[in-house]
Every structure is written in structure tokens, then in C-alpha cells.
Simulated scan of single mutants.
Amino acid sequence: MRTGATFRLTSDHSGSAAAVTRFLDLEPSQAFEAGDQVGGRSSATRRGSLWLLSSKLPPSSEVTDHLHWLLDQLEPKADALWQLTDRGYVADWFCLAASQATEHAIELDRLLLRRLLALPGDLLLDVTGDD
């Protein structure tokens, strides 16, 4: 089983990833600005900014553990996160669960769901094979 979770803030308007970092006073795992080149050899450029905070837990951890790790970092910034979404940023929680068929279940308990609902962003689950 390989898992992970990332909180993402995107902006297709004038908002920048650098502005998010300053506003939250929190360093992202990765950040990209509108106009940055996409990929190493691609001539395409990003249409908007992207600010990412990824769980630092091992990829063998449960998805819920990754989400709890992110929530521990972001809950103190709840008001600022809501302000960013009010300014036009789009938030989501992107989770990966790569596993062999019928090998593993992901449990999202009520406490975790309650914590997620207190912050902006939809929950996205990418469930795939581990190959």
C-alpha cells in the first residue's frame, strides 16, 4: 500500500503562491506561480498559481494519518484559509491510496470528517492499483 495526502490551494486570478506563503506564515512543500513552465521539457506554462502542503509521513501510513498530520498543521490557520478562499483561491485535500485490489480499506471516521469540514476544500480520493 502506498498512500499520501496534500492540501492544495490554486488560483486562476491574480493570487500567487508566494502570497499564500506570506499570508499563512507557513512554508509549502511545493509552490508554483502562474507563468511558470510546466515540466522540464514542456513549452506549456501554468495558467494559475499552486500552493501545496504534503504530509511528511511515510507512504506506508494510513490515509487518515496523513490527513490528521495536515490538519495539525492547518487548523491553527483556519481563519486565514477561509479568507484565502473568500479571495478566490480554491482549496482541496488530495489523497492517494495505491493498493492491490481488495487489499485495503480506507476508513474516514466521524472525528476526521468533522475536522475536515471545519476547513475549506473538497476531499479528493485517488484510489488506484499499486503498479
Rank of each mutant, 00 (worst) to 15 (best):
H68V: 04
R2D: 01
D92W: 04
G40F: 12
G15F: 12
R110C: 04
S99I: 10
C95P: 11
F32C: 08
G88T: 12
S54C: 08
T21S: 15
D109S: 13
T45G: 01
L123F: 05
T10L: 13
T102F: 14
W93V: 02
L108A: 10
L74E: 01
F32S: 13
D130Y: 00
K56D: 03
G48V: 05
F94L: 10
L111I: 13
G88S: 11
G4C: 08
G129Y: 04
G121L: 00
C95M: 11
H13M: 12
F32P: 06
V127G: 07
E62M: 07
G4Q: 05
D122V: 04
R46S: 09
E33N: 11
S16V: 10
F23M: 05
W82F: 11
E27Y: 07
G4K: 03
S60C: 08
A44T: 07
S49P: 10
V90I: 12
E62P: 00
A98K: 07
T10P: 05
Q37W: 06
L111Y: 11
D86K: 09
S42M: 04
T6Q: 13
K56P: 00
G48T: 07
R114A: 11
H68T: 05
L123P: 02
R46V: 09
T6Y: 05
M1G: 13
F23W: 08
T10G: 12
D12F: 13
V20D: 03
S11H: 12
L117M: 06
R47M: 11
A105S: 15
G4V: 03
G48D: 06
R87L: 15
L70T: 04
T10W: 08
T21I: 10
A118V: 01
L74D: 00
E75M: 04
Q37I: 10
A19I: 00
E103Q: 09
F7L: 13
E33Y: 12
L24K: 08
M1S: 12
E103C: 07
E103L: 07
A80I: 02
A18S: 14
F94W: 10
G121Y: 00
Y89W: 12
R87Y: 07
L70I: 02
S55K: 01
A44Q: 14
T10E: 15
G4F: 06
W51R: 02
D122S: 13
H104W: 07
V63Y: 04
S61Y: 05
R110S: 14
H104F: 06
S42Q: 05
F23V: 10
T3F: 03
S16R: 15
S43H: 07
I106F: 05
